[in-house]
Write a protein that binds this DNA or RNA. Structure first.
Lengths: 198, 198
DNA sequence: GTGGATGGAAACCGATCTGTTTCCACAGCA
DNA sequence: TGCTGTGGAAACAGATCGGTTTCCATCCAC
């Protein structure tokens, strides 16, 4: 049954998928039809289409994070936990229906940085950077802030590459993240000592 | 006089700017009005809006390349010539009206990788990668293909960062490119020997 | 001049856009 | 049995979409 969830949940789910797959210019009619919700209901649940864009983006955010980032303490090293993000991205880009990071995609489409959807995109992009930062601090690197930003840029660069080329990444993102971590001396624990003396 | 150039040129110019600034979903009416060209003329110069998207993207391509890449032989080292691209990008992102790399932006918006505009985007993105590749081969690095792709991804990652954050890059792209070049041992000539023995 | 090509202005087409409204089916509750 | 609130179906509004067409002004070749 499609009608298990509330209209609001159905709308957010459908919006999260259709805005991502077809772009934010998809019509409200098509959206409501996909959600099995009337436009009347939509417009009394959300003030405008723009608000729905923002709220649906905010609603997919946590799930997207959870899909990318490993759990809080899985016993892995910071390096492994960071690389896990890029492995997951590589898998997503290899499957069909990949249109890049939804936050970057939406920000590109909206153009206006003050659009509520752009604000949400900015927020979640910062959260990924913060995840990298936390791991890098735990790894004790020299300049964790710079490297966290570089890893986030690697993530978005890989996503853009997959979109523009319409191809799988075949590990280019993973290897680039590894190269950055290598250069910063972030190795697996048993290799850390050896790495330091290079 | 706006009417100096031919209708075709005026259309391509206006399309190049408006598709970039407002997105490819801008209407044909607004576009023709900005170009000072009737829709009738537009539709006898271009088969469809989609074709205009592709042709305008192809027409801005060379100028965009020329703005980014240094001239053929300016006497600079490969490292300097590569970094010049990122310096230029940094300047573009610092000025107003920056919406990221037009090819990446259009590819994200179009979604469909078979759209003629997506094909053009792919082509020019490959040309930037090829520019990096040529310089890296000249510099004699070990794995020029991998590094060229990484530099292209850095370029797109920096562009995405500027768009999502709606802020200047403040050199983060430049420094990341430098880090990659450093790690590959691409130094200015007088330092090359010293780099090798590390 | 005159004929033909160029090209802009604008009406027009059917479809779709965001957003509003009306109407009705059907809950749960008194 | 009635009352109220939720929510879907669908008509509606005015604007705009991509695309076509008609009409007319201009300009260049002859």
């Amino acid at each position: 049954m499609t009608t298990q969830a509330t209209p609001r949940e159905r709308l957010l789910d459908a919006a999260g998928e259709l805005f991502y797959r077809d772009g934010v210019n998809i019509g409200v009619d098509a959206l409501c039809k996909a959600a099995g919700v009337s436009k009347k209901s939509m417009y009394q649940l959300f003030r405008s289409k723009d608000e729905l864009i923002a709220e649906s983006l905010a609603s997919v955010g946590p799930g997207y994070q959870q899909a990318l980032e490993p759990g809080i303490d899985d016993g892995a090293t910071p390096r492994e936990r960071i690389l896990a993000v890029f492995v997951k991205q590589d898998q997503l880009a290899a499957g069909g229906e990949f249109f890049g990071c939804p936050f970057v995609s939406t920000a590109f489409e909206l153009k206006n940085p003050e659009h509520p959807g752009s604000v949400v995109a900015r927020h979640f992009k910062q959260r990924l950077t913060d995840f990298f930062l936390g791991e890098l601090i735990a790894a004790g690197v020299d300049d964790p802030d710079t490297l966290a930003v570089q890893l986030a840029m690697t993530f978005d660069g890989a996503s853009a590459r997959a979109v523009v080329r319409a191809q799988a990444l075949n590990g280019v993102g993973i290897r680039m993240a590894e190269a950055l971590l290598d250069a910063a001396g972030v190795r697996a624990p048993e290799l850390a000592g050896q790495a330091r003396q290079n």
